[in-house]
Design a binder for these strands. Structure first.
Lengths: 146, 146
DNA sequence: TCAAAATGACATGTATAATGTCAATAAGTT
DNA sequence: AACTTATTGACATTATACATGTCATTTTGA
């Protein structure tokens, strides 16, 4: 029962997450970024400008907290407000040149780290593991909703 | 880069963990247990009596917080203090009959849930995924320590 | 024997959110 | 155009899950 690989996999998610977050935090050393600022910048970098409620939807956390995160990036000069053609009082948050350069650099260094780590792990195995983990997550979510 | 399965796997750890914790929480409904009390009881159930510092070592969180968790289980009558032959002022925490029955029931129901969820997942695949996740966690930890 | 370590208890601090509320605006509806 | 309803930003409060600091009391081990 305790030997059930699925059970063990479920309980490995916390150590994995903690290790991942520690690694991210370490990669942020000296950048002046916090993990939560990084999260905002990453989404903007990957998906382009977005309003605070849109960011909240992607992050799956409440807009009120995302607002706090975004305000920090605005204050740091890493993002700026732009007119939102879709909603006139809800500005789009957009990376500044500084912000774009910074997040690009952070993500690059993270990619290098992942590549180093991936050296000992077969990409095909990783892909299969990813599929299992995704399926497992879906099923767990579904079990709670029932 | 964003398509790197390893990268995706790393970022799936948070959703997986959240889904898992939501499922655990749901399984605790009506038991009067909190997630943190359950964690204490589970360790005692699997490994037998332990002192607070020993529990803290297993949980990898600070003894001061574990003390709080344990005190809640003591107050709920789910655990009791026993003389510790190894350290005379640090009692062993031990399950009461009530506590033992309760955690056994909770773990049983969790096992049923895992079995249901496992229905759609090949155990061999789960085992391979577990190996990948464990290796990945180790490597991430090592990368932070360097 | 005596210094160093371990323990319980308590107080305070911190990160990551959720929740509640309000006023200003915007959108959709008639 | 008027009116209702929804959205947004801003701010305050609360909650959870820990870490950290400190102290007095044992306990251990040299």
């Amino acid at each position: 029962m305790i030997r059930d690989p699925l059970y063990q996999l479920i309980w490995m998610s916390r150590p994995l997450m903690q290790a991942a977050e520690a690694a991210v935090e370490r990669g942020l050393q000296g950048s002046g970024l916090t993990v939560r600022m990084r999260a905002v910048l990453e989404i903007l970098h990957r998906n382009g400008d977005a309003s605070v409620p849109e960011l909240a939807a992607r992050l799956e956390i409440k807009r009120q907290y995302v607002q706090v995160m975004v305000n920090e990036t605005l204050q740091a000069g890493l993002t700026e407000r732009r007119v939102n053609p879709r909603h006139k009082s809800s500005a789009l948050v957009s990376l500044t040149d500084t912000g774009r350069a910074l997040i690009a650099d952070v993500l690059d260094r993270e990619a290098v780290l992942v590549a180093q780590i991936g050296a000992g792990i077969d990409p095909a195995e990783a892909e299969r593991a990813l599929n299992v983990v995704q399926a497992l997550t879906e099923k767990l979510k579904a079990s709670v909703k029932e």
